[in-house]
Amino acid sequence: MTMPRIVAHPDRPYVGVLRTITMTTFGEVADRIPELIAWLGRQGLALAGAPFLRYRVIETAADRLEVEAGVPIARPVDGSLAEEAGFFAAALPAGRYATVTHHGHPDRLAGVIGDLLAWADKEGLTWDLAERDGVERWGCRLELYETDPRVEPDPANWDTTLEFRLA
């Protein structure tokens, strides 16, 4: 894991799909990333960064998550065009993000997330997060998948960047 740092981002357009899942049904959203990339290719749109998962709602006790799979693009796309394909067009919000990169299997991200949360707490940082009755609603909490699994099939060699928006 690299040392956490703070970066500033402008709005970043993307195309995505949203699903309500559990910890055991992640594939229902994550497995849509290749479909999103293929659709963008058919539209003549290039990726403008790493595909990601965006965690909107985390309700640990109920094992319920609202998660988007998304692919960043250089310029906004017509929302109705995306909707026809079963996707949506949106933008990740501008702002300051705490970020860290993990090299290794994505199954080990829980520890990296814990370390990032602890670092931010120690630094006195506040997340773009509303929490009530055990339900976390994140303004923008991302896992960016930097490694193309077609090029590097071994998950132990993958790089994943976490970006959590600050309040």
Rank of each mutant, 00 (worst) to 15 (best):
H102F: 11
A90F: 08
R137F: 03
C140R: 02
V135Q: 02
D11L: 07
L45K: 15
G49L: 06
L92W: 02
I21W: 04
A167G: 09
A8I: 08
Y97T: 09
A8M: 09
R32C: 09
M23L: 13
H102W: 07
G41C: 09
V135N: 01
P149K: 03
W138T: 12
D31K: 12
H105F: 03
M23R: 09
D154E: 07
E143Q: 14
W127Q: 09
G79H: 09
A89L: 08
T126V: 12
E143L: 09
P4C: 00
R54A: 11
E83F: 12
L129W: 07
D133E: 13
I37C: 10
R32Q: 10
E123Q: 13
L125W: 02
A120C: 15
E143D: 12
T101H: 05
H9A: 14
E152Y: 14
H102R: 05
T2D: 03
T147Y: 06
P13W: 01
G124I: 00
G134P: 09
I33T: 12
W127K: 10
A50M: 13
I113C: 06
E123Y: 11
W39M: 10
V29N: 05
I73N: 01
L117F: 10
R64Q: 04
D78Q: 05
Y14E: 06
H105Y: 01
A130P: 08
G139K: 05
L45T: 13
R5A: 13
V29E: 01
V7R: 03
G95V: 12
G16V: 04
E143M: 10
D148W: 03
A120I: 15
E131I: 07
F52T: 04
D78G: 04
I73F: 02
A38D: 10
A98Y: 04
A94W: 08
W138S: 10
T101W: 01
C140I: 10
F52W: 06
D159Q: 12
V57G: 06
R54Q: 10
V67G: 03
R75K: 14
E123W: 13
G111E: 00
A98I: 07
Y145Q: 01
G49N: 02
G104Y: 11
R75E: 14
V135S: 04
E143P: 15
A89Y: 08
P93Y: 04
R75T: 14
R64N: 06
E59I: 11
F164M: 04
G111A: 02
G86L: 07
L142D: 00
I37H: 07
I73Q: 02
E143F: 13
V100T: 01
V29P: 05
T2N: 07
V112Y: 00
E28Q: 13
Y97K: 11
L81K: 10
A62H: 11
Y145K: 01
L129H: 04
T160C: 02
L92Y: 03
G41F: 03
T99S: 06
G41D: 11
D148T: 02
K122R: 15
A69H: 02
I113R: 03
D154M: 12
G134S: 08
L53H: 15
K122F: 15
L45N: 12
V71R: 00
